[in-house]
Structure formats: structure tokens, C-alpha cells
Design a protein around this nucleic acid. Structure first.
Length: 482
RNA sequence: GGCGGCAUAGCCAAGUGGUAAGGCAAGGGUCUGCAAAACCUUCACCCCCAGUUCAAAUCUGGGUGCCGCCUCCA
């Protein structure tokens, strides 16, 4: 059985057949770095992380590209508000994004191009489109001529006539562009800008590229004219991906991507979580309350094409559930327990483990179910349910060697979904540490008051061994790390 | 207004024709100085109506409710 992928373009599940046997070119739209990332971005990142991990597990040589939009109006406007340069703002939030991804155990993409690195390619592409008669220059701007693209609207299932008349809210802003655009739905490949702003020189004067152009250019430069899978959040279907597709395909006369995949959103109180609604929690906020594995379980328990409603109750349910997996995996490998993150470690099994798994009936059965679930359009919800099934078997088994093997399998297969199953139960925060030490110092004071110096010295000496130095000061006892 | 999606136990959530995965919570039990944890166990006929079929949560039609996209957005 091969991998089935739901293709947004056709609206159906299709058998995945890569363009070149054994290889997958995968491109996912990454963030615009103008603000902190929230749970919705975490979902996008985790979903694509799992897809690329699974494709590697399935034996494909994957080239996973995720771009960074580090120049656009949002960045420029925000930078203006903060009175810093746009590139400073972008760098700040890019660093933060990387930190978030690392903390979430999201494996880095193979290639991570940034828009600002591909200006010449974008300009070149816009020029080529003009040359080919698919785009036109108008007052320093360059617009893509949607009328010259018969397929336009296919991906987003839009009808050009509807777009012209239906987009009521859009009409006002279109008024001012009436004289420059031939057709209201034409979109900018290049926008002129005052030379005092961030921009680049082009054949049409000083300005900036249109947003959609960057992905088209980077895909072409990094992966080629046609890729296997192109994805992103479902809000990107239209217009972003529609426009990318129109540009690239008009220029190359071949499909931009064979499969289009889109993940659904995270809602809060049944409303989309988004920066513009301001109802979001940042990834940093969430990671202070929940582990990366908990967040990942919360996300992967729902199929990627269905919306998730965020709630503290659901998060806590995931937290409790995760502990069952963590406990079951404890036997796997003592040295790994509690060692924190080890990002990207589980791309693939080592061959020795894979051989051992093949000889075990339970794991073979589990493997079949797990793979069947993942092959079915990356149904992580079902895959996860099989992890729980294996965890139950581990708990019920009396045979230690068997339990260890199963536990290792549990950890390895969980790794395909990006779980670390690190045991964080004994990771104590600073607040707890201080309370515990305060208690010990109190017990020591009580002992000293009773002239029980044996006990008081025991406490101080043992704490010293643990790297805590106790000092008696005029204000009472205190401690510091040695 | 146009387009698309969803509606499954107290909650979250799989399941696209053969008779309801999984998780949380809750009840019962084992263990236990107390408490907690752990482990075992119990718990649904799938929004409404009509139809197709030997057989439907799953297909068709209608209804109701909710959500998303059409403008920046993962």
C-alpha cells in the first residue's frame, strides 16, 4: 500500500507517486517574521515536520524547503512603529522563530531560503513574465495578467467573474488601482516604493517584490520548475498559492506542484486564532506551561485537515495522555531518560533495531497498523492511537526483555511523529527548587536550635555535595550554587 | 453575495458501505501506614427528515447549526 495524499487541487485523495522515483521535493510556506509565533504556526510547523519525517521513514530521499519571508509591508510597518530598521525586526523574530522550532523539536528544513536573498531571481522572473506577455508594467508597478491564465482559480476553486464583482470590501481599495490595473484581480509582481523606504532597484524603478513572487522564485531556484508537494496553511490556498501557481505555470508551461497540501487551523472558542484577532498564545507562552511533546500530542491527535479548538482542558488531556506514553517508553534506554531534547535524532531507525523489530510479532503487527494510518493521508490521530495500544501492551507484559524491546520500538515510532518521550516528570522549576531549599534550611535551623548539630551538619554537607553552598548570615541562612 | 468545510459518548477525536479507534474525565477494582501515582476494568447505535442498498455514522436529496476562505494571516 502506498501513501495516499489529499490533494487540494483535485479535492481528492491520490496515490503519492513522486516525479523522480525515491525522491521528494517538498516545499512549505514558512512564516513572515514580523511578530512572535503562536500555536497556529506551531501546528503548521509540526504538521510539516511530521510529513517530512514520515516520508524519510518511508524511504524517500526528501529535500524539505521552508522559506522565511523577511521583507514585506507588515515588517516595514511594524519596524516603523518600533523605530528600527525592517531587517532588524525581521532578524529578531527570525531568531525567536528558530528558538521556538528548536524547543518544539521541529527538525530544521534542509534549505531555508529568505526572500531578501532572492531579489534578483524575483526581478528576473517578473521580467520574464512581462517578456512572455503574461504580465505588464504600469506606473512603476508590474502586474500579473490574470486574464492570460486560463486555469486561474482552479486551486482556490474561484471564479474570476465572482472575484471581480463579489469581493465587495475589496472594491474600495481597487478604485485607486483602477487606472493601473487592467483587471481588478490582477496582482502585483512588483510594487514601486519611495526611495526612502526599504527597496531594490529594478528595470521598472525602485520598489519591492509582490509577496507571491518570492515562493515561486525560491522554488524555481532551489528545487526546480516542478516539485512534488507544496503546502502551507489553508488560508494560503487563495490567493497566495493560486497566484504562485499562476506565475510559475504561466512562465514554465508545466505544473508548479504535483500535490498541494494544506493544514487546517487552530481556533480559540471556535474562532480562528490569528495575529489580527489578537486571540493568540505565543509558542513561548505555551512552552512555559506545557512540554513540547504535550503540544505535539495535542496537535497530532487531530487530523491535519480538521480544525482544532484550543482549550486548557484539551491541553491538559493531552498532558495526561502523554504521560502514559512516557512511562511506557521509560524502559527503552536508560541513558536517554530525562536527558531533555535531542532534536532530529529520529529521522530513521538504525538498521539493527529495525531487524529486531521484524522478528517480533507484536511490533510487526503494530508497524503495519502505524504505517497504514500514516499512509492514509498522514492520519496521525490513528497512528497515535496505536502508540497507546503498544504502551498498553508494554504495561501488561511481564517479560522484561520483551518490554524493553517494545519500549524501544515505542520510542522509535514516536520519533517518527517527532515525539521525544523524554521523561520530564523530575524536571523541577526554580520556584520549586527554592521552596525545597527553604524547607531544608528551615529543618537545619530547627536542628541548630535544638543543638542537634549532627543533623544540621548533615544537611549542610549533603547540600554541598549536591552543589549547594549554605551560608549563615546576619539575616539568617541563605544558599547559592557553588 | 460567491466558494469550501464540519456536525460522532460529559469533553477532545478517528472512522467514506458491513454493523462505532484512541485520549481526557467519571464509576468499579488491585496495590497502599495515609495520600498520590501506577495497573486492570466499565462507559455511544453517530444533528434532524426522506431516500438508495441485503447492509449507512459512512452514498443521495432536503433541513438545522457551526466554521473557514473571497483582504494581511499558518
Amino acid at each position: 500500500m502506498s501513501i495516499q495524499i489529499f490533494n487540494t487541487l483535485t479535492g481528492k485523495k491520490e496515490e503519492f507517486v513522486p516525479i523522480e522515483a525515491g525522491k521528494v521535493k517538498l516545499y512549505a510556506c514558512g512564516p513572515t517574521v514580523y511578530d512572535s509565533s503562536h500555536l497556529g504556526h506551531a501546528r503548521m510547523a509540526i504538521v510539516w515536520d511530521v510529513i517530512q519525517r514520515y516520508l524519510r521513514f518511508a524511504g524517500y530521499k526528501v529535500t524539505f524547503v521552508r522559506n522565511i519571508t523577511d521583507i514585506d509591508d507588515k515588517i516595514i510597518n511594524r519596524a516603523k512603529e518600533l523605530n528600527i530598521r525592517p531587517d532588524q525586526l525581521a532578524r529578531h523574530f527570525l531568531y525567536e522563530f528558530w528558538q521556538d522550532m528548536y524547543a518544539l523539536n521541529v527538525a530544521p528544513p534542509d534549505i531555508e531560503p529568505r526572500a531578501t536573498e532572492y531579489l534578483q531571481q524575483m526581478i528576473g522572473m517578473a521580467a520574464d513574465l512581462v517578456k512572455k506577455g503574461k504580465a505588464y508594467e504600469s506606473g512603476g508597478d508590474v502586474y500579473f495578467d490574470v486574464g492570460a491564465c486560463p486555469d486561474y482559480g482552479k486551486l482556490g476553486k474561484k471564479n474570476i467573474e465572482d472575484l471581480k464583482s463579489g469581493a465587495r470590501d475589496q472594491v474600495r481599495s481597487q478604485d485607486e488601482l483602477k487606472d493601473v490595473k487592467r483587471n481588478p484581480v490582477d496582482f502585483a509582481l512588483w510594487k514601486s516604493a519611495p526611495e526612502t523606504e526599504t527597496g531594490w532597484t529594478s528595470p521598472w524603478g525602485f520598489g519591492r517584490p509582490g509577496w507571491h513572487l518570492e515562493c515561486s522564485s525560491m522554488i524555481k531556484s532551489v528545487l526546480g520548475e516542478t516539485i512534488d508537494i507544496h503546502g502551507g496553511g489553508e488560508d494560503l490556498v487563495f490567493p497566495h498559492h493560486e497566484n504562485e501557481k499562476a506565475q510559475s505555470e504561466s512562465l514554465h508551461d508545466k505544473p508548479l506542484a504535483k500535490y498541494w497540501m494544506h493544514n487546517s487551523f487552530v481556533n480559540v472558542s471556535e474562532e480562528k486564532m490569528s495575529k489580527s484577532l489578537g486571540n493568540f498564545k505565543t509558542i513561548g507562552d505555551l512552552l512555559r506551561e506545557y512540554s513540547a511533546d504535550t503540544l505535539r500530542l495535542f496537535i497530532l491527535q487531530t487530523h491535519y485537515r480538521n480544525p482544532i479548538d484550543f482549550s486548557p482542558e484539551a491541553m491538559n488531556a493531552a498532558k495526561q495522555a502523554l504521560m502514559r506514553l512516557v512511562r511506557a517508553a521509560l524502559l527503552a534506554d536508560a541513558e536517554e531518560n530525562g536527558s531533555g531534547f535531542y532534536p532530529s535524532k529520529h529521522y530513521r531507525f538504525d538498521q539493527k533495531a529495525a531487524e529486531a523489530y521484524k522478528n517480533d510479532e507484536t511490533i510487526t503487527e503494530f508497524h503495519k497498523e502505524f504505517v497504514a494510518a500514516m499512509d492514509n493521508d498522514f492520519n496521525t490521530a490513528v497512528a497515535v492511537s496505536h502508540l497507546f495500544g503498544l504502551a498498553d501492551k508494554i504495561a501488561a507484559s511481564k517479560d522484561t526483555a520483551q518490554r524493553q524491546l517494545w519500549a524501544k520500538a515505542l520510542k522509535d515510532y514516536s520519533g517518527i511523529l517527532g515525539f521525544t518521550l523524554a521523561d520530564t516528570r523530575k524536571v523541577v522549576d526554580r520556584n520549586s527548587t527554592e521552596q525545597v531549599l527553604a524547607l531544608l534550611l528551615q529543618l537545619r535551623q530547627d536542628a541548630r536550635a535544638n543543638k542537634d548539630f549532627k543533623t544540621s551538619d548533615l544537611i549542610r554537607n549533603e547540600l554541598a555535595k549536591a552543589g549547594i553552598s549554605v551560608m549563615d548570615t546576619a539575616e539568617g541562612p541563605t544558599w547559592e550554587k557553588t
